[in-house]
């Protein structure tokens, strides 16, 4: 009864952040950070989002936080090939890194969420992930006086609502930015010696359409590099012995046949720290990833036409791996969990 009553009031609660918005600084090699007009980041929403991000109370048995699978120790990715939910529930995909998610036009491997705000809370309720209804999450958080103060600071009242949770999480996630890597200093910073000779050779292969052809999807523009086209491609991961696909990927969202087995191009920022690779975590090392492409992946009826015969010898494959290691930027400070003061 009490729950219903509060739920009824919730519609009137403002979900707009109060207070001055903060400018998110895009490091070298990244474009300005896109900000939705209805959720400008503020110090208070970022701080709240961060606390929520690390809060295990958002899972059914108080064991998992967002940070469990998007682990800051692994540059906000999951070292398990398939991410594990509450009680060891096994999902089907590897949790992607949150690095530079602010720039993505859709979220999840299959792009089913069109904004970070929409994405943010859905793993909380997913039975294979944190497995806790939003109602329960809201009531658990509302019991904590620290949250009541933080929601008040962020939104002007102590009310805990799903929308406020989503907006705060999204604002925190927008601060997980990586640029100013050796590659950026070479490409955009006028430092020709920032890359080693092997890395520079790897970059040349990366952008060469008849060699690596990587930049066909992992985009580099003259002004910045997100290393993703934001689109969905079937590169031949997760192919069964009979040529069918284990996970239909983007097809689940669009029901367009040619989207079968297609997944969103992931960023390559900080890729050296985010193993294992691919939507199913099936490749353990960058060497394996490069070799996977060098061999044209796994044939299946929906493979992307960009997956074509290329020839990369051992030296070239090694140069590409070296280049990928040059994409590791330093993450901003203050992303780590706040240790509560006694």
């Amino acid at each position: 009864m009490v729950l219903l009553f509060t739920a009824g009031c919730r519609a009137k609660v403002s979900e707009s952040p109060i207070g001055p918005s903060v400018q998110l600084h895009a490091p070298l090699g990244l474009p300005p950070v896109p900000i939705p007009p209805d959720n400008p980041p503020t110090e208070a929403t970022i701080a709240l989002g961060k606390r929520l991000f690390y809060d295990i109370r958002l899972s059914k048995d108080n064991t998992l936080a967002c940070a469990t699978c998007h682990d800051p120790e692994h540059d906000f990715s999951d070292p398990h090939p398939i991410s594990l939910g509450v009680g060891g529930a096994k999902g089907i995909r590897n949790a992607p890194t949150l690095i530079n998610v602010a720039y993505q036009s859709s979220q999840f491997w299959d792009g089913r969420a069109t904004s970070l705000e929409i994405q943010a809370a859905s793993p909380i309720a997913d039975p294979l992930e944190m497995n806790q209804t939003h109602k329960v999450s809201v009531s658990k958080l509302a019991k904590d006086p620290v949250y009541r103060k933080m929601f008040t600071d962020a939104f002007g009242s102590k009310d805990v609502t799903l929308g406020r949770v989503e907006r705060s999480l999204a604002s925190f996630e927008r601060t997980i930015l990586s640029g100013d890597s050796a590659f950026d200093r070479f490409q955009y910073g006028g430092q020709p010696t920032a890359l080693t000779p092997a890395q520079a050779r790897g970059l040349a292969l990366f952008i060469n359409p008849i060699k690596g052809n990587c930049a066909a999807c992992h985009t580099i523009t003259p002004q910045y590099a997100l290393f993703t086209d934001g689109k969905f491609h079937n590169i031949g991961i997760g192919v069964n012995d009979d040529g069918t696909l284990k996970d239909a990927g983007r097809y689940h969202e669009t029901t367009v046949k040619s989207d079968t087995g297609a997944f969103k191009t992931p960023t390559l920022r900080n890729i050296a720290n985010t193993a294992p690779y691919m939507h199913d975590g099936s490749l353990q090392t960058l060497e394996q990833v490069v070799s996977f492409y060098a061999g044209q992946g796994n044939s299946n009826p929906y493979i992307d036409r960009e997956i074509k015969t290329i020839h990369l010898d051992g030296q070239e494959r090694s140069d590409l791996v070296e280049f990928l290691k040059s994409l590791t930027g330093k993450l901003p400070p203050n992303l780590e969990e706040e240790k509560s003061h006694p």
């Binding site: 031949g236 192919v239 040529g243 394996q288 070799s291 060098a294 061999g295 044209q296 992946g297």
Partner: peptide, 22 residues
């Protein structure tokens, strides 16, 4: 210790190729 990509170039059977890492 290296990845191979086996490719039986069948004409009557289904042609396929598949990556196999170490």
């Amino acid at each position: 210790p290296v990845t191979h990509n086996i490719h039986p170039m069948a004409e009557i059977n289904r042609e396929w190729n598949h990556s196999q890492g170490p």
